[in-house]
Design a protein around this nucleic acid. Sequence first.
DNA 1: GACACTACCATACTTTGTACGAAGCGACTG
DNA 2: CAGTCGCTTCGTACAAAGTATGGTAGTGTC
Lengths: 231, 231
Amino acid sequence: MSQRVSESSRKRRAALSRERVLEGAVAIADADGIGALTIRSLAQHLGVKPMSLYYYVANKSEILDAIVDVVFSEIALPTVNGDWRSEIRLRAHSARTVLRRHSWAIGLLESRTTPGPDTLRHHDAMLGTLRSAGFSIEMTAHAYALIDSYVYGFALQEAALPFDGPDTVTTVAAPMIEQFPAGEYPHLVELATQHILQPGYDFGDEFDFGLDLILDALNRSIPEQDKVPPS
Amino acid sequence: MSQRVSESSRKRRAALSRERVLEGAVAIADADGIGALTIRSLAQHLGVKPMSLYYYVANKSEILDAIVDVVFSEIALPTVNGDWRSEIRLRAHSARTVLRRHSWAIGLLESRTTPGPDTLRHHDAMLGTLRSAGFSIEMTAHAYALIDSYVYGFALQEAALPFDGPDTVTTVAAPMIEQFPAGEYPHLVELATQHILQPGYDFGDEFDFGLDLILDALNRSIPEQDKVPPS
DNA sequence: GACACTACCATACTTTGTACGAAGCGACTG
DNA sequence: CAGTCGCTTCGTACAAAGTATGGTAGTGTC
């Protein structure tokens, strides 16, 4: 992470590198959203001129592909040791945390169809854990599609929530509800006033309910004799 | 909602309207992706000049908000009559179908935080169905977060699949796998060669497995005396 | 000293969103 | 019938963004 270039070579600034470009891209997207990530803003962030970046990346699309892979690299990998449910739960929580930190990544997933090496490594570890737990190949496909759908979908919903930074549920949702045409959305109002707007409610807490429900139900589908006992 | 302008007024072209603008926007996004949707392309599609659109929409962001709402309006609403599970299943399938037709919508969800009227109506109907089925308010919140996470997440994964049009799984996945460093992703290769690349496999079929698993598990969580019997 | 290689950059062109203001046209008024 | 008003459409222009093209400065090699 430090420069080993002689001080004379480049005035004072750390040398550029593909990694520094990607790091900078993630930093900008985290701070100001993916919309603020432009070649020019990234160059400025790095203290160079726009065209310099093209020495390290072919184009902006490649940057987007690469930072999605960076995001995957931050998600903790499950291992094949130990209880499969706690392993999967751990990586699910890790995925959610990472996707919350880089919430722009979810929107990118839809358009990026060339998975990077870290993404592939990630999928492979998940599949390995499920197979070792005793799931058949077919069941592994079912389970993985289910688990990842849930994790990504939950992250997507969290990202779409209108409160992110200083705003709280109350400051945003309450005025919104007041604007509803009277009686137009009765159940939405009921849920909001009687549950979501109550002090202490946190949408993020819903995550564990669904995750455990899914993992428990999946556990029931492993034939007894194939089950790998928790170590 | 119909034109009361005399035929002479505008040469031959149908009169512009906010609806026609949004329809056009959806058509372009469906055909060539959300990236192809520009003010200029949309204007050309409608046979007008770019600046004309700004009479009906404030800016492009409003168009994006609005077409997300259009997508929601296409999803079938569940009713409160009948078996809640089949109602929810129906709308889940509808949602998946619609999100497949408009796969660009998923990527937009993350950035659009101002739900439109059709979106709200949709949520309200879902909540109503769950409440009528006998779920407590708290349980309804759990269930809805779970169901929608799954549906959106599944749609997101489908959208991210590299094969969409004429490409089949085989033509895309097979060469991809061959490029893997040998032995780097053993479980991925196992799953691909022994299951996914087998004739007849369709990722879309995974949807029902997860959906039924979730609905059955949720059903178990309704207290017996609160259950509303299927009509 | 010629050369090549690496890392960075100046210029300029294209594509976008959109601000600003005007023009066409039907309806209504006098 | 001229004038004017409001609705709808458009011409022009500019700023921001991606990037093609072709440098150039520094460093090492023979």
